[in-house]
């Protein structure tokens, strides 16, 4: 857990991206409200169609779609609120999810396939299989996660073209 927390480079990734907006082909930012299941998945749906419009290859779009959808669902299911940002650069796509929520007590455990703290209600909806974070990582070329108990979680995913 300690190794995840000490990654300062990641903490500034979001800010850095905003300062260098001009370098990106496209950037999108979505506010996600926790518990709002009716619109859950809409941000990822928009992201996917925008990337299609940009003419990005199918296998890349697929990985971005899975990663953004898993992060979006994590915010909806576990956090109070959050933002999902996507930056499209010349050679990569970066997804940054920042939420205000309970945080993840043991990130290493949460990264294990099948480990989940999801409630029965979440499981009934088909989520909480303990595959969300592992799925995100599988789709990523770079994956970083930082969580503060009682404050929230940040996830950064980079997918190279």
């Amino acid at each position: 857990m300690k190794s995840y927390k000490s990654d300062k480079k990641y903490l500034y990734a979001d800010r850095k991206d905003k300062n260098h907006k001009g370098k990106f082909l496209m950037s999108m930012r979505f506010d996600i409200s926790g518990g709002n299941l009716d619109s859950a998945g809409e941000a990822s749906s928009t992201i996917k169609s925008k990337l299609k419009q940009l003419g990005i290859g199918y296998s890349i779009i697929r990985r971005v779609a899975i990663a953004s959808y898993e992060t979006e669902m994590n915010i909806v299911l576990h956090a109070n609120r959050g933002t999902l940002s996507v930056y499209v650069a010349e050679d990569h796509i970066k997804i940054i999810a920042v939420d205000e929520g309970p945080g993840i007590p043991n990130v290493e455990l949460a990264m294990q396939e099948g480990y989940s703290t999801a409630t029965e209600q979440i499981r009934e909806m088909g989520f909480g299989a303990g595959m969300g974070l592992p799925n995100m990582k599988k789709c990523s070329d770079q994956f970083e996660i930082h969580s503060d108990i009682g404050k929230g979680t940040k996830v950064m995913i980079v997918i190279f073209f």
């Binding site: 749906s45 697929r62 899975i66 989520f127 299989a129 599988k138």
Partner: peptide
């Protein structure tokens, strides 16, 4: 749904016992 995301391929059929809107969203992804 996380299993669907990793298992399924495009041009593929999804069989499921779950009937909420997230099934459709997941399929869309």
């Amino acid at each position: 749904m996380s299993d669907v995301l990793m298992l399924a391929k495009e041009n593929s059929l999804l069989l499921t016992g779950l009937t909420n809107t997230q099934v459709v969203r997941t399929a869309e992804m």
